[in-house]
Simulated assay, not measured.
Amino acid sequence: MKSDVRTLAALVAAGTNNAETADQTSLAENLTSSGRIEDGSVYRLELTPDDTVWANGEGYTEIDANWNKIGEISDVLLDKNGQMIAVLVGIGGFLGVGDRDVILPLENVRFAKGDDNTYNYVTNLTKEELEKLPEVDSGIWD
């Protein structure tokens, strides 16, 4: 699938509009918009030895009832080459009051598709590790 995404991305970047080479259906199935990631939730899970999804770097197909919701995704962070490298997450607080923005690198998160067709994240960081993450001023990029 990664090679399909790279091929489609290369075709899109090259400006092709040939329907035979850049099939829109394949594009929609293999890519998502950052708007569907932003405003998603972030959950924390306790990893178990039999969790092959995390170990294989795959995404989860549903939200597990045992996961603890820890916050909301406020932004998707890209490096200067346009590669997604992290998510900005508001954690703590209640109903958006008293929360703080932290950066979760991609190696500490996996996608988790929600019932409402949004993308969420799940992290393997412990509560203590999350509390130690430095706060980031979300206006730093303005």
Rank of each mutant, 00 (worst) to 15 (best):
P105C: 00
A55Y: 06
M1P: 01
E107D: 07
A55W: 07
A9M: 09
G40R: 05
G35C: 09
T126L: 02
G114S: 11
V97Q: 15
V97H: 14
T126Q: 05
I91L: 01
A55V: 14
G35R: 15
A10E: 10
T126C: 03
Y43G: 01
D50H: 03
E72P: 08
E62T: 01
G93H: 03
S41E: 08
D79E: 13
L88A: 13
G82E: 15
N17H: 13
I91S: 06
L133H: 05
S74M: 15
A112V: 01
A86S: 15
D79Q: 11
G59Q: 04
K80T: 10
W67V: 04
T32W: 00
T118N: 11
G139V: 13
T7Q: 07
E38C: 12
K69G: 06
G139C: 10
K132Y: 01
T25N: 10
T16Q: 02
Q24V: 09
K2M: 05
T16R: 04
G57L: 00
G92Q: 07
G114H: 06
E20Q: 10
N68S: 08
P105W: 00
D99T: 11
V76S: 09
S41F: 00
R36S: 09
N120M: 06
Y121R: 10
F111Q: 14
V87Q: 02
D4F: 10
V42E: 01
V89D: 06
